[in-house]
Lab assay of single mutants.
Amino acid sequence: GCWSIEHVEQYLGTDELPKNDLITYLQKNADAAFLRHWKLTGTNKSIRKNRNCSQLIAAYKDFCEHGT
Protein backbone atom coordinates (compact mmCIF):
# COMPACT_ATOMS: atom_id res chain seq x y z
CA GLY A 1 0.00 0.00 0.00
CA CYS A 2 0.81 3.68 0.23
CA TRP A 3 3.29 5.17 2.63
CA SER A 4 1.88 8.10 4.56
CA ILE A 5 2.92 11.48 3.23
CA GLU A 6 4.50 12.25 6.63
CA HIS A 7 6.61 9.10 6.35
CA VAL A 8 7.76 10.05 2.87
CA GLU A 9 8.60 13.62 3.91
CA GLN A 10 10.58 12.38 6.88
CA TYR A 11 12.40 9.41 5.38
CA LEU A 12 12.73 9.86 1.62
CA GLY A 13 16.37 9.60 0.63
CA THR A 14 17.35 7.55 3.70
CA ASP A 15 17.83 3.80 4.11
CA GLU A 16 14.30 3.69 5.48
CA LEU A 17 12.87 4.88 2.14
CA PRO A 18 15.35 5.12 -0.73
CA LYS A 19 14.35 7.41 -3.61
CA ASN A 20 14.64 4.29 -5.71
CA ASP A 21 11.68 2.65 -3.96
CA LEU A 22 9.42 5.67 -4.35
CA ILE A 23 10.26 6.05 -8.04
CA THR A 24 9.60 2.35 -8.65
CA TYR A 25 6.29 2.58 -6.81
CA LEU A 26 5.10 5.58 -8.82
CA GLN A 27 6.22 4.08 -12.12
CA LYS A 28 4.30 0.92 -11.35
CA ASN A 29 1.12 2.57 -10.10
CA ALA A 30 0.72 5.94 -11.81
CA ASP A 31 -0.45 6.44 -15.38
CA ALA A 32 1.69 7.69 -18.25
CA ALA A 33 0.32 11.24 -18.19
CA PHE A 34 1.14 11.56 -14.48
CA LEU A 35 4.67 10.25 -15.03
CA ARG A 36 5.24 12.64 -17.93
CA HIS A 37 3.87 15.58 -15.95
CA TRP A 38 6.26 14.91 -13.06
CA LYS A 39 9.12 13.91 -15.39
CA LEU A 40 9.27 10.42 -13.93
CA THR A 41 9.70 8.57 -17.21
CA GLY A 42 12.95 6.87 -18.14
CA THR A 43 15.33 4.86 -16.01
CA ASN A 44 15.29 4.95 -12.26
CA LYS A 45 18.89 6.14 -12.30
CA SER A 46 18.25 9.16 -14.53
CA ILE A 47 15.22 10.11 -12.45
CA ARG A 48 17.23 9.90 -9.22
CA LYS A 49 19.76 12.26 -10.77
CA ASN A 50 17.24 14.75 -12.17
CA ARG A 51 14.56 14.88 -9.48
CA ASN A 52 15.34 15.94 -5.93
CA CYS A 53 13.54 14.74 -2.82
CA SER A 54 11.16 17.69 -2.65
CA GLN A 55 10.08 17.12 -6.27
CA LEU A 56 9.48 13.44 -5.57
CA ILE A 57 7.51 14.27 -2.43
CA ALA A 58 5.35 16.70 -4.40
CA ALA A 59 4.69 14.03 -7.02
CA TYR A 60 3.84 11.48 -4.35
CA LYS A 61 1.41 13.88 -2.64
CA ASP A 62 -0.28 14.54 -5.96
CA PHE A 63 -0.53 10.81 -6.60
CA CYS A 64 -2.04 10.12 -3.17
CA GLU A 65 -4.54 12.93 -3.52
CA HIS A 66 -5.64 12.22 -7.07
CA GLY A 67 -4.54 8.61 -7.48
CA THR A 68 -5.26 6.96 -10.82
Results as ranks from 00 to 15, higher is better:
K39F: 04
Q27I: 12
L56S: 01
R51W: 08
A58Y: 06
V8M: 04
L17I: 03
N44T: 15
W38A: 03
L56H: 01
L26S: 02
R36K: 12
Y11Q: 10
E6C: 07
C64W: 10
K45W: 06
D15A: 14
A30D: 00
L56C: 00
K49S: 07
N44R: 13
D21G: 08
F34Y: 04
D21R: 15
G1T: 12
A32R: 12
L22W: 00
W3T: 02
A59M: 08
F34V: 02
C53E: 05
K49G: 06
C64Q: 06
H66G: 15
W38M: 02
D31E: 10
L40S: 01
L56M: 04
T41A: 10
A58M: 11
L22A: 02
W3C: 03
G13A: 04
I23W: 03
K45N: 04
L26P: 01
N50Y: 07
L40P: 00
T43R: 12
N29W: 09
T41N: 12
D15F: 13
I5K: 10
C53S: 09
C2G: 15
C64F: 10
Q55N: 06
S54C: 11
T24W: 07
S46H: 08
T24H: 07
I47K: 06
E65Q: 14
K45M: 08
E9R: 11
H66P: 12
V8K: 01
S4V: 03
L26I: 10
L22F: 07
K19D: 04
G1Q: 14
I57K: 14
K61L: 03
P18E: 04
G67W: 14
R51C: 13
T24A: 13
G67H: 15
A30Y: 00
D31F: 00
Q10H: 10
R48G: 09
P18K: 05
L40Y: 02
D21K: 15
L26K: 00
H66Q: 12
N52V: 04
C2Q: 14
G67Q: 15
N29R: 08
E6G: 09
L26R: 00
A30K: 00
E6W: 05
T41C: 13
I57E: 04
N29C: 08
Q55F: 10
N44Q: 10
G67S: 14
Q27G: 04
K28Q: 13
L35I: 04
A58L: 12
I23M: 03
K28V: 09
L22G: 00
D62S: 13
D15Y: 09
Y25T: 03
Y60P: 01
G13P: 02
H37Q: 13
N20E: 07
Q55M: 09
I5D: 03
R36S: 11
A59N: 02
P18Y: 07
N29Y: 14
N50V: 06
I23G: 00
A59F: 01
K49N: 10
L22N: 01
F63H: 05
K49P: 04
R36V: 08
G1M: 14
S54G: 11
K61N: 07
E65F: 13
L56E: 00
E9V: 11
S4Q: 06
G42S: 09
R51Q: 09
S54I: 11
N29S: 09
K28N: 14
I47C: 09
D21C: 12
N52L: 04
H7E: 07
I57D: 03
W3E: 03
N52K: 11
P18A: 07
A30I: 01
G67C: 07
A33Q: 12
Q10R: 13
S46Y: 11
D62C: 14
N44C: 07
L35Y: 02
A59S: 05
F63G: 01
W3G: 04
I47D: 07
R36C: 06
Q55K: 09
K49I: 03
K61E: 05
E9N: 12
K61R: 13
I57G: 04
S4W: 02
L26V: 04
E6P: 05
A30M: 03
N44E: 08
K49C: 06
I47Y: 04
T43C: 06
Y11L: 10
E9Q: 12
Y60R: 01
H7Q: 14
T14A: 05
R51D: 08
N50M: 05
H7I: 06
C64D: 03
K28A: 10
I23R: 01
L40N: 00
A32Q: 12
A59P: 02
L35M: 06
N50P: 05
D62G: 10
E65W: 09
L35S: 02
D15N: 15
D31G: 11
Y11N: 14
K49E: 09
E9F: 05
G42I: 05
Y11G: 03
W38G: 01
I47P: 06
S54V: 13
T14R: 08
N52P: 09
G13N: 04
